[in-house]
Design a protein around this nucleic acid. Structure first.
Lengths: 141, 141
DNA sequence: TGAATACTTGACTAAATTACTCAGGTATAT
DNA sequence: ATATACCTGAGTAATTTAGTCAAGTATTCA
């Protein structure tokens, strides 16, 4: 059970962006250098973030990205969803061949994994970008 | 962010075992047939479960496995830990080359991922095998 | 206008992980 | 004896991840 780099990087990059949130856009190059993330990979990630209206892009010299909303309004769930980082615990979803769909009986642990998914998603729904940059780490379950 | 089959199968198999918990041991062959999990794979999994004292084995004809403790005392955390299904959200742990260890500054999102890990582990600590077989699904966060 | 900067897009690939299979073996009951 | 079922380690195909590479387009500034 682990988080992928794409999801982690997306959150790291946006936290960085929120930190340096000024009038000027922040270039991916800067984020790349500060966070140690490959520029090419960042471009992939931000293309998705843009498509989901989480960031806005400004082209040309001195261009870069800026947040499209107030950090408080950007939930981790939004970010992770944008980069296709889904929480998946079961195989037996609608379109899947595996799992309890192709059997007559529902698998024993089905409800359990659903609960787990909800439990994790709850966490991502609670946290927003603002929580990250004011890092007093007062997060509670 | 997803659970591996090994972890899922381990829990499914043990739930099955708990369900058919009688005087007689349950063979992997039976579990394999009922749950649709490859026998060879089950053997790998149960070898680990045995090493962690979650099940006991009985060899020979009519042999099989039985639970080593009361289902209430077997937490999901124990099971997943036994099959090496760890919850990993950050790269920057002690022995890792990647992440914020090899940098001077601590990465911005470090605390966040730690919180997430705790959040998920909390779930696995709360649930036990008994919860699964009395499937009234009354789990709350 | 032209050069530099920085976003944009899609295809491709190496490495790692996962989810097994395979091929032997050993212990026990009947 | 023989069948059952546990036991163990090595190997491997498929999938996923984590990027790289290449070729653009838009904008600013000198």
């Amino acid at each position: 059970m682990k988080l992928t780099s794409k999801g982690r990087y997306a959150v790291m990059a946006l936290a960085d962006l929120a930190n340096f949130n000024s009038v000027n856009p922040v270039s991916l190059r800067d984020i790349s250098l500060r966070q140690g993330i490959s520029l090419d990979f960042l471009e992939q990630i931000f293309s998705k973030l843009k498509r989901h209206n989480i960031v806005k892009s400004i082209r040309g010299t001195n261009g870069g990205y800026i947040l499209n909303k107030d950090p408080v309004q950007i939930k981790l769930a939004n970010i992770l969803n944008a980069v296709d980082e889904e929480v998946k615990t079961v195989q037996c979803k609608k379109d899947s061949k595996k799992g309890c769909n192709n059997k007559t009986s529902k698998c024993i642990t089905h409800n359990l994994w659903d609960e787990l998914e909800m439990h994790i998603n709850y966490f991502f729904e609670q946290k927003n970008l603002k929580d990250l940059i004011t890092n007093t780490s007062e997060g509670r379950n």
